[in-house]
Structures are given as C-alpha cells and as structure tokens.
C-alpha cells in the first residue's frame, strides 16, 4: 500500500493549487491517469458496476418505484381496464390502512408470530447443525436427507400434510396423544402454534445447512483448545462458535426475519384464509384479502410499501446493532 499512498501525494498536493470553485475535475483526471487506484474512486468503478446496476435497477428499483407510485392512486381493476379515470389520492390509501383498527392488531400478531418463528427456526437449525458435527456419517446423511426433504417440500404440500397430521377426525397426532377429536385450528394460539411448527419445519434446513458449513470452516485447533480448557458444549457454542459464525448467523437471521414476516401460504392453507373470524391473520394474508382479492391495487401497494419499510427498518436496526458491538460483517 505504501507506494500507492506516496504516489497519490502529488495529486492530493495539487488540489490546493486549483481554484476553489472547481476542485473536482483536477483529482478526477489525476486519478484516471493512474487507473483509478486512488483513495476516493471516481466514475471508473461505476462503469464496471453499470451492467449489474442496470439489471438491479430493472429488477428491483423499477418495481419498487411502480409499487410506490400506485400506492398514491385510487387504482382498482376499473382503473386498469379503463372503466374509470385514475385518481391521485395522495396519502389516502395509507390513511385508510392506518385508520383500520384491524391493521394494527394484525401487525402486532405478525411481529410476534414472526419473532417466534425466527427464534424457533434459529434454535432448531443451530442445534441440529451442532449435532451434525458430532454424529457419524450414516446418521448425518440421514439427518441431512430428512432436512433437505423438508426444505424441498412445497409450502402448500407441507401445510396440507401438517393439517392432516393434526386433523381432528383422521389425524394420527390426536390418536397418538389420545386427544379424541380435539380441533387444533379452533383456538387462536393452538392454530398459531400449528402454523409455527410447520414454518420452523420447512425453514430450519436452510439455517442448519448454512451454519453446518460455517462450523466446518472453523479451524479444528480452536475447538480443540476449547475442549482442552474443559469447555462444555454450550460454552463452546456461546464463546467460540457463535462469535466466529456471526456473519453467517447475521445472514440467516435476516433471511428468516424476512421470510417469516412475509409468511402467507402456511397461514392461508392451514387456517383457511386467516382462521376463525380472522384470528390468525398475518399482514400478507390481510393485504391479500383487503386489497388484491378485490383488485384494490392502490390499497394493496400501500400495504406493500409499509411492509417494505418495516422490513428495511428491522434489517438496518439489526445491522446497526451488530456494528455497535464492533463486528465487521
């Protein structure tokens, strides 16, 4: 690095000589001459990034822009097909959402449910990942295959099978536990619990596989040292593995938060579109029923934007928290 810094000195020194109202062009030309290796890069990196940015822009920015745009209009099927003119509503759609008492209840339920799902998924995923490193090849293979099977099962299929397992009349679970014809989907919490089990079942394999890969990458000496120091399993995880795996855990946590916050299929299938009297509604199902099923695209987009901002806020907050603990990602 030293030669580069030294080479940069003349360029930097040249800055004071340039008239104060035009500081920018001088460093840029200066740096371009050296292939863009300076301290503050100019346009060259952006040129290299342009193809990726164009793709990202087309696939991400444009849809989000459309989502935001539509959320400010009264935009239903009648407007799409030209039956009525499109009307600008300002924040009218947002006001509708925020003034609906049910929205707040659903939001609270969604946050709590997603939090429980994330904790459950991470706990099961990490525990099984550690287990994978401790067992022999054959049981490891069996566990891997079982997990991959759960992972590969489509959400609709998984939900239907779980529902059958817990069916009051024909389900094996009730027969095994001797519960008679107890209905799991009737009570609010038991219905949420049932869906939670399914969500954890279908999403722990991702955590398990990722964390397992991370553990395999941890140098054996470190673990050996911990073992020599007489650290217990839990202590090794808490003080050695978890800190070393932090980047991986961060990624799987954020992924899980996003997935579980957006859960739709499981709730929709297992509680028949939101449960008895809508008691198991989560935000996505709410958005679907309030907006998309009746072609209220403006309202639906407003809910979409709200969800986007919420998830963004949660993710940023989480990253910020990690930064504060002095961790590089």
């Amino acid at each position: 690095m030293t030669p580069v810094t030294e080479a940069a000195e003349p360029g930097a020194a040249a800055v004071p000589g340039v008239p104060a109202h035009a500081p920018a062009p001088a460093p840029r030309t200066g740096r371009a001459g050296r292939g863009g290796v300076g301290r503050a890069p100019g346009w060259t990196p952006w040129l290299y990034l342009a193809p990726a940015l164009a793709v990202l822009g087309a696939l991400l920015v444009y849809p989000v822009y459309q989502l935001g745009l539509i959320s400010f209009f009264r935009y239903t099927q009648a407007q799409v097909s030209g039956g009525e003119p499109t009307v600008f509503r300002g924040f009218g759609n947002y006001a509708d959402v925020f003034s609906d008492g049910q929205f707040w209840q659903v939001l609270l339920a969604t946050v709590l449910f997603a939090a429980a799902c994330v904790l459950g998924t991470l706990a099961v995923g990490c525990a099984l990942a550690v287990l994978l490193t401790r067992v022999r090849a054959v049981p490891r293979l069996a566990l891997m295959l079982a997990a991959l099977g759960a992972w590969a099962t489509p959400a609709v299929t998984g939900s239907t099978v779980w529902l059958f397992l817990f069916d009051p009349d024909f389900g094996p679970v009730n027969r095994l536990l001797g519960l008679g014809d107890h209905s799991w989907t009737y009570g609010r919490y038991s219905a949420f619990l049932l869906v939670l089990l399914e969500v954890v079942w279908s999403s722990f394999p991702f955590v398990m596989v990722t964390v397992y890969a991370g553990i395999r990458a941890v140098p054996a000496e470190v673990l050996e040292a911990a073992a020599l120091d007489g650290a217990s399993q839990w202590r090794t995880w808490r003080s050695v593995l978890a800190p070393m795996l932090r980047p991986i855990l961060t990624v799987v946590t954020i992924q899980s938060v996003i997935w579980d916050f957006k859960v739709f299929t499981q709730i929709y299938v297992m509680t028949n579109g939101g449960g008895i009297a809508g008691q198991n509604m989560v935000l996505n199902v709410y958005a679907y029923q309030q907006a998309f099923a009746s072609s209220e695209y403006g309202l639906g987009s407003a809910i979409g934007v709200i969800m986007l901002l919420l998830l963004l806020a949660v993710t940023l907050l989480y990253l910020r928290l990690l930064r504060r603990q002095g961790e590089e990602l």
Partner: peptide, 27 residues
C-alpha cells in the same frame, strides 16, 4: 453518491409522469 442521481431521477419521474397505466378499454 449513487443515491443523488437516483433520487433526482425518481423526483423527475414522479413530477413529469404519470399515473400508473390504464388501458383504453372503450367500445
């Protein structure tokens, strides 16, 4: 830096455009 032109672009798009699309489904 990248957000500045992006934001400008967005503002421009919102200002000059443009309601979301409608088809002219007249008889």
């Amino acid at each position: 830096k990248p957000y500045v032109p992006l934001a400008a672009l967005l503002t421009l798009a919102v200002a000059t455009a443009c309601a979301p699309q409608s088809s002219s489904n007249s008889a």
